[in-house]
Simulated assay, not measured.
Amino acid sequence: MFVRLAAIPKAVIMQPTTLCSLDCRYCYLPFRKVNHRMPLEVAAMVAASVNPWAALQPGFEVVWHGGEPLTAGRSLLGALMEPFEGVTHTLQTNATLVDDRWCDFFEERGVGVGVSIDGPADMNRNRASLGGRPAHDRIIRGIGRLRERGVPFSAIAVVSDPDPARAAEFYRFFVDLGCDVLGVNVEEQEGVHTRASEPDPGRAAQWWVALTDAWRADPAIRVREIDRVLTFASAVLEDRIATNTVQVWDPLPTVAYDGGVVLVSPELAGFTDPRLGDFTTGNVLSTPLDVLLAEAESRTPWLAEFQRGVDSCRTSCSFFDFCGGGHPANRYFEHGGRMDGTRTTYCTTAKIALLEGVTAHVNAHSN
């Protein structure tokens, strides 16, 4: 097997609550309308493993995700953060609850903020309130508080329709929004969201061409996906792409509200399969996180099947060196509950089309 998990992760994802203040139409989370909250004991157990890792690895991140982490409230979220030492706290929010008191919280604790918003109002229509009403104005209002208070933030957008004709408008929106980094996720079929659109691969590639054109014309912010392609291109030019060697994955442990730990693919948290179980490697309330990682292969039945799928990608796909074999959740939800399939729609639109699009941009501007 070529795939192995790193002994120490670069980050840990924490789910302080399952509850969300929105009901986005493409959301994959199964319990977003239920208010399950993380007990303080779970955070303390995670911190017992994380703190030594952070001492060895400066910049170690603890990422608070949900649900909507702000629905946990400042008191609980602050108490959950308390046991951690030497880490960088970040959180991903839809910004609907952001006010001056939350800005105080971010500033006092040095919390990095990421905001989820998909673009101008009509592109953001899938982000809706629990009552089904458009949430755009509430999100923009929360972002306005961050800007007025001088709290820096990044942004993540889900693109349901990668229309090349709108890529420049999309990019300009985020430049004007004031974020410093933009991450772009093409809508995926995963979790309880089973009816994702399937964009034409050629059209998706043209979307990435147009987005790169817009960024190149005014590189005011970083675009995560373009950075990835440029980093890969640099590695190729410098002959730093290793082949036929062990592939090391960041285990990226996701700790659910109840202490259950899912590795590599946060989108699998909260799901159960009759064949593969609940996807967890164990629970921090009974086994320390560092032990769960050290014994991950024997404790995680689906990893071996996933490894076989990655090996199949390695031998069958010319884009493998760039994407590394895809993600477990995309394989599982697109291949009828199997982890050993190969290409997915996500691969096609978010990896292959991305590489082809940025490469096409470079070729067009190198002549």
Rank of each mutant, 00 (worst) to 15 (best):
A165G: 08
G282D: 07
A220D: 03
N51Q: 13
N244K: 15
F232E: 01
R149P: 10
D100A: 13
V113M: 03
A168N: 07
E225L: 07
D278M: 04
R343D: 07
S265M: 03
W208G: 00
Q206F: 02
T88F: 12
I13H: 07
S160A: 14
D137L: 12
G259S: 08
R74F: 02
A157P: 01
E305L: 14
C103Y: 07
W208S: 05
H361T: 13
P162L: 00
P266E: 11
A121Y: 03
L211S: 04
F153V: 02
S21Y: 03
G202P: 01
A48C: 10
P274G: 13
V62K: 03
D176C: 08
G150W: 08
V111N: 06
I352Q: 14
L177N: 09
G59L: 10
V3D: 00
F84V: 09
L230Y: 12
I221L: 03
R308I: 11
G66R: 03
V291M: 10
G142V: 11
E334L: 08
P253L: 06
E295T: 15
I143C: 12
L252Y: 08
I143P: 11
T272M: 11
I221E: 00
A79K: 13
A54F: 04
S154T: 15
D218E: 15
A168G: 09
I139R: 03
E188S: 11
G336R: 05
K33D: 12
A48Y: 06
A296T: 05
G183A: 13
N185W: 12
V186Q: 14
T349P: 01
V34R: 11
A242R: 13
V223G: 03
A360I: 00
S129E: 15
V46E: 02
V262E: 04
T212D: 02
D161W: 12
Q247S: 12
V113K: 01
H36L: 15
G119L: 02
G309F: 06
D273P: 04
F60T: 12
V12M: 04
P69F: 08
W64I: 04
V223D: 04
P328Y: 09
R166E: 14
R138H: 14
D258V: 02
I241M: 10
N283Y: 04
A294F: 10
F322W: 11
D122P: 07
T243N: 10
V181N: 01
L211I: 09
R224C: 01
T88E: 15
Y257P: 04
M1E: 15
A304G: 10
D137Y: 02
E238Q: 13
P219H: 06
P164T: 03
P83T: 07
F105P: 05
C27D: 04
N126Q: 12
A54G: 07
A217N: 00
D100L: 11
L237P: 00
G191V: 08
L289E: 09
P219W: 01
F306W: 14
N244E: 15
W64Q: 05
V46H: 05
M14P: 01
R216M: 11
G191K: 05
A121I: 13
V362R: 15
E41P: 00
V62H: 02
P288N: 09
V63I: 14
V284K: 02
D278L: 02
V261W: 03
V184A: 01
H89S: 07
P219V: 02
H36A: 13
W102E: 06
A235R: 13
L268Q: 03
G191N: 03
R109D: 06
R314K: 12
L182C: 02
M123C: 09
L293E: 10
